[in-house]
Design a protein around this nucleic acid. Sequence first.
RNA 1: GGCCUCAUCGUCUAUCGGUUAGGACACCAGGUUUUCAUCCUGGAAAGCCGGGUUCGAUUCCCGGUGAGGCUGCCA
Length: 488
Amino acid sequence: MRTRFAPSPTGSLHVGGLRTALYSYLMAKQTEGQFLLRIEDTDQSREVPGAVDIILRGLHWAGLDPDEGVVMIEGVPGETGNLGPYYQSKRLEKYRHAVDQLVSGGHAYPCFCTPERLEQMRSAQAAKHQAPMYDRHCLTLSFDEVQMRLKAGDKHVIRMKVPHEETITFEDDIRGQVSFQGKTIDDQVLLKSDGFPTYHLAHVVDDHLMGIDLVIRGEEWLSSLPKHLLLFRWLGWTAPRYAHVPLLLNKDKSKLSKRQNSVSVEEYIAKGYLPEAMLNFLAMLGWNDGTTQELFTMQELMEKFSLDRVQKSGAIFDLDKLNWLQGQWIRKLTTEEFSARIFPLVINAYPEATDDKDFAKKAALIQERITFFQEAPEMLGYFYHDPFIEKDLVANKKQKVTEEDVPRYVKILIDTLEPIDEKDWNEATLESVIRSAVEKNELKLGQLLWPLRALLTGREYSPGAFEVAAALGKEMVMKRLTAPKMEQ
RNA sequence: GGCCUCAUCGUCUAUCGGUUAGGACACCAGGUUUUCAUCCUGGAAAGCCGGGUUCGAUUCCCGGUGAGGCUGCCA
């Protein structure tokens, strides 16, 4: 099966687009088919330089590299495949050819109406509570007049001539049977006056010529599907199958928008989301495998995904769930992977960490404690510089450590830890000696551990006291206990 | 306004006529040999409304209501 993703180069890759790309990719891969990328750059006014690069990089990040069409070649956007070009702006003659065929078949006609006239017409229709539709004014022009104006080079568009008496019925892979009455369908512009096609024409021509047999796209396209089907029929082509996926929604249930959400994949990449988490999240928004499984790898998605289990209603883009997934996937990384991922961030903040042979050990301590790699430097800072200790931090009511107790507890800690030999300095030893000190002094464990941890890290929360002390080494621990950098 | 689509906990969803309507996120409570996090246990939380079909409807049909999408020489 051949599927495609066909975004417009408007500057960013939309998460909704990434989801349809994912579904398309999965459908292609399940059947060992191809997943293509085509760039829909037919609106010159909306084009943004560098946009294709962004799209390609986003897809690559997600692991959805296209097999054919516009692809990254040695780091720059290029094209591969023999059904190109894969940029619509380079396919103008193909659209022109299709349009000629439609016009000569009587299914399309030139329209010379000015934007001003169209606007007037629409507001008049609105005033009468009528659906705004082209009134077919230019269809009343005589053959000779049309020829004359064409020859004179009058500005015009080509519109499709929708049969009003017909009802168009079709089968959508997600929604089932849907039908439209011809009289409610507008005579869509197919070719703009600048010679570029509109989406409708370009989609039909390209998806036919590129051999696409399943089109997966957002629900916002459902109402223009009858137009597309008409075009396929008039051109004598077999239409592909269609699957209109439910929309991604804002909290207020409107179509996911920039105003209310981060909608571009680049933003999520920058925030440090794992592609695994994003893909998992996107797959689950509107699809499930029928079991209670929540975590899916790309491999599992490839095996289990199916359109008939895709939801019909829109899904709110719930960041809480994404973040939970992110945490799950962070924890699934091996210690080595996790460590390698946070290393550059940490040495950027603490160059001292560069030569730290035990970095991976420290990294392991925080893997269960963070959701984003970016949190790592902050969580590891005290390993690389002596923290300032706020007075209020060491005394802690809940741990039954009063300000007056602190000196005594610290002394117990020093007396307990000092005798330990450097080579016995590890979590197990630390735990056992501190436990016996607790017993001997009739204290609660927290009464020693809280001040210890606080003095070592300077933080309200961190990995456990034993772990931190072990990782820090005896020298540093003793230094921080005996001469803490107190902050008043 | 017209056309189209959709409708189960706050959110994502399971259920293919018979269930104490299940799971997950979020939330609340408790536990997990100090904190935070993780993890575990428990709790609260849903079939939009009205008809019909049926022995029996969340499930099938109709109507209403609500929500969304489209209604551009944008995609």
